[in-house]
């Protein structure tokens, strides 16, 4: 068995409340902030203290798959991905880091809420502030709804399984296959290491796909492929998933 060792690769400079971020907070006047960060930017003691000095309450929580409090991963993208519901209980969601993959999980996790709160991105390297809004995932929500409907109406389902240990759900895939076949439908399980979605077109007999690997394949990659695909979670309870989205 191969042993694993992780290097967090922390950002070396101290992260503080820049004038730009201070101005932004003063303009938007949040009373409470739900604070998240990518692991490289997790050392936020100074920034937290400086924000609290503006009479703003900072709330943090631990997301299910992460190693530490406040960290956010791309796959913690469901409403029940967090220990405490701080996203619902805050005026502003603030993410410290670069890139869009991780903070987008904070938007996707609100998909079943009536109001999807924007996520404010603060990049300590460039001192840039951006906002991710509902608009940034609207296409994904639309596609997800359409794909779940397609799944419900499909008779031949393809289930994708990766053999990468961190994302492998072979047993769940087999359980899902049984569940699907109890409804007099056919399903096939496809196995690979990296799931290269260009291969989907080789199986034109499949009417809808289910992804069991990284959940972001079923939320993000679906907008760039022609074939309908949903995540395993939705496939186990498609009616409930559809109800949540149509709230």
């Amino acid at each position: 068995m191969v042993r694993l060792f992780f290097v967090e690769t922390l950002y070396e400079k101290e992260i503080y409340l820049t004038d730009k971020l201070k101005k932004y907070l003063k303009e938007n006047k949040p009373k409470t902030i739900a604070l998240f960060a990518a692991i490289q930017f997790i050392k936020l003691e100074k920034l937290k203290k400086e924000i609290e000095n503006l009479d703003i309450i900072i709330k943090t929580t631990k997301a299910k798959r992460t190693g530490v409090e406040m960290q956010i991963l791309g796959c913690d993208n469901y409403h029940d991905s967090f220990k405490e519901p701080i996203i619902e209980d805050c005026d502003m969601i603030l993410y410290v880091g670069d890139g869009l993959f991780h903070p987008k999980a904070l938007l996707l996790s609100q998909i079943k809420n009536k109001k999807i709160k924007s996520v404010v991105l603060f990049d300590p390297i460039s001192n840039e502030i951006k906002e991710l809004t509902k608009k940034d995932i609207e296409n994904q929500i639309k596609k997800t709804k359409a794909n779940i409907r397609k799944f419900l109406n499909s008779d031949k389902i393809g289930i994708l399984v990766t053999i990468k240990p961190g994302q492998q759900y072979f047993e769940a895939a087999k359980t899902l296959k049984e569940k699907i076949e109890k409804q007099n439908k056919k399903s096939y399980i496809f196995i690979d290491n990296t799931l290269d979605l260009r291969n989907l077109e080789n199986y034109p007999f499949i009417e809808c796909w289910v992804n069991t690997a990284c959940p972001r394949i079923g939320t993000d990659d679906i907008t760039t492929i022609n074939q309908p695909m949903i995540n395993m979670r939705e496939a186990f309870d498609p009616i409930k998933a559809l109800e949540d989205l149509e709230n």
Binding site: V2, R3, L4, F5, F6, V7, E8, T9, I39, Q40, K64, R65, T66, G67, V68, Q71, L73, C75, G166, Q167, Y169, E171, A172, T175, M232
Partner: peptide, 18 residues
């Protein structure tokens, strides 16, 4: 026969159980 793999930029995560 790789004995140790070292990955940068991430930390240990908790796989979801199904």
């Amino acid at each position: 026969k790789i004995d140790l793999m070292i990955q940068w930029g991430h930390n240990r995560f908790h796989k979801e159980t199904w």
